[in-house]
Write a protein that binds this DNA or RNA. Structure first.
Lengths: 111, 111
DNA sequence: ATTTCATATGTACAAAAACACATATGTTAA
DNA sequence: TTAACATATGTGTTTTTGTACATATGAAAT
């Protein structure tokens, strides 16, 4: 019962849900400063929210030089699977311009 | 974005998740006093939690004499559908004895 | 009509969560 | 080695959420 509650709690905040939504839809790992820019949120808040998501085992991190990249924890149970699918159904339109912003950022990154 | 957040928030409390879990697994409408007895929670707390679930549009109510029965709001979108399925995967074992208690109660009701 | 039962809610308080500012840590670049 | 950058965290404050007690409302039973 605790695992689902922690997951629901982690997803019940706009910033955190947006982060998960981004990771889900970008299908790529994203670093803190990119999230900060895309969501237009303070860096310290993003870091704190990421910590909560990590604690709920929704994301994991990998350090590369100065950057810390976050990505969705690989799915290992049906509950997580269904939650992920539910998040996928949240339409892009509800993310306003965040998604375009993020796409642009990631595109530049690959140059 | 708000609808999913409200749903996640509604489900991120043990009492509320248990109520939804019961309604999901009993597949029957349940009245407040039954929930109170099964979950061994104060009546006023159960009422308040039900109000939050109603506000998140997860449940609806129907009044029958002295009793108010609550039931899952009929599913009308994919998001809700997937969330419901996710809740279904939460194993009975994690509900301790609540489920047996509830089955007993409902059985007696039909006599 | 009064009591009893089922449910809801006002109010006060406590606990938890979110936020802001400053600052620390660690890494790369100059 | 110093400066600049990326990220994390300590601390204080505000906001939100959950809980408890008392009480209100409304329906059924006596």
């Amino acid at each position: 019962m605790d695992e689902p509650i922690n997951i629901f709690k982690a997803l019940s905040d706009a910033t955190r849900l947006k982060i998960i939504w981004l990771l889900t839809n970008m299908d790529e790992k994203i670093c803190v400063s990119e999230i900060v820019e895309v969501l237009n949120e303070y860096q310290y808040n993003v870091s704190r929210h990421l910590k909560i998501l990590k604690h709920a085992k929704l994301v994991e991190e990998v350090k590369e030089g100065k950057w810390v990249y976050y990505y969705l924890t690989p799915i290992k149970n049906e509950f997580r699977q269904l939650i992920q699918e539910a998040i996928k159904t949240i339409p892009e339109s509800q993310m306003n311009n965040e998604i375009q912003k993020c796409k642009k950022l990631l595109a530049e990154r690959h140059k």
